[in-house]
Amino acid sequence: MLGLSYFSFAELWSPLFLAVMLLLTAGYFVLIGPLSGRFQGSSRVPLWRRFSFIFGMLALYLAQGGPLSLLGHILFSFHMASMAFSYLVAVPLIMLGIPDWCWRALLKGLLRPLRRVSFLAQPVVAALLFNGLFSLYHIPVIHDYVMLHFAVHRLYYAVLFLTSALMWWNLINPLPELRSINGLGQIGFIFLNMVLLTPACGLIIFAGEPLYATYSNPQTWARAMGYCVSGSPAELLQAFGGPAFFGWLSPKVDQQVGGIAMKFIQEFIFASMLAYVFYHWYKKENGQDDAEVSAPSSELEERVLTRV
């Protein structure tokens, strides 16, 4: 399928990355299980949170280490699917899987060092950061440069992951004492994110020609592929000739499909979040929502109240 049979098991499944993800998942279950008693206010983690974390880690692995990652180096449409899974699916699922008492313990230790950069988590700043970096990445000259330089590629993806977490924090933050926005504010924040990503997707969808040499120029494609499969660029060119070997779509159509896929996934996820936020906001406004109970430590409360 899609030429995946031409690649080895290691190239398709990235065993080292898989091992890291499994270790992190195992650490999560040790933390919420045997070690949970060491945390103030700890309680049993609901099953839905556990499954949320598992599915989030699975989405991240498939997007950054599994076949979807490899296909993302071959075809632009799969690249955009990989980006959507990484930052619009995996990040919120992983964050939802972490219970409030874990977040409090983490922030208790990090609040003071991060005080000077706490403004990055403010709604407008977080939305501009993530969507701005995401859009900047898809400017053709920047995208091709990042794809051709492995260290820059990993660093940029790590920064996107962090800024995505800051953006999602404003929507799924489980700590009432640290929420910047609620109700209508969250609804407006969702619309802001939906709007900010539109120009980049529009540029990709309505471009009159292929924008990215990584997916249209065989030599550039072979150089980028060298970071995820064995063989020199010359060997890859001799074996496959270029990305056209694996696709049934032209580079331009493949690019358009990628832009449409990203926008569709984003719209679906944020529309679902919009319905969820509106439902709970409506219930709260009508006095039907259960009161939120928070039990932060007095030290954390003091730090929150005095933070800048």
Rank of each mutant, 00 (worst) to 15 (best):
E267H: 13
N217P: 00
G231M: 05
Y279F: 11
S5R: 13
I98A: 00
S8K: 14
R50Q: 12
L148S: 12
I205N: 02
G202C: 12
W248D: 05
L31N: 01
E292I: 11
E285K: 15
L22T: 10
V146I: 15
E285N: 14
L110E: 12
A121Q: 14
L196F: 12
L175F: 09
N286Q: 14
V117L: 11
S180I: 13
A291P: 06
L171A: 05
N217K: 10
R223G: 01
G185W: 03
Y276M: 05
V30C: 04
V308M: 13
F268A: 15
E267R: 09
S14H: 12
N193L: 04
L166E: 03
L31A: 06
Q186L: 04
Y137Q: 07
L35C: 04
A81D: 03
F85D: 04
M225N: 07
F130Y: 12
V293P: 07
F191L: 15
V304M: 14
Y215I: 00
I94W: 06
F150I: 08
L106K: 01
N217M: 02
A10T: 15
L75C: 07
S230M: 07
T214A: 06
P210L: 01
A213R: 12
L148I: 04
Y157P: 02
L175G: 06
S294Y: 11
E301W: 09
S36K: 11
I190K: 00
E235L: 03
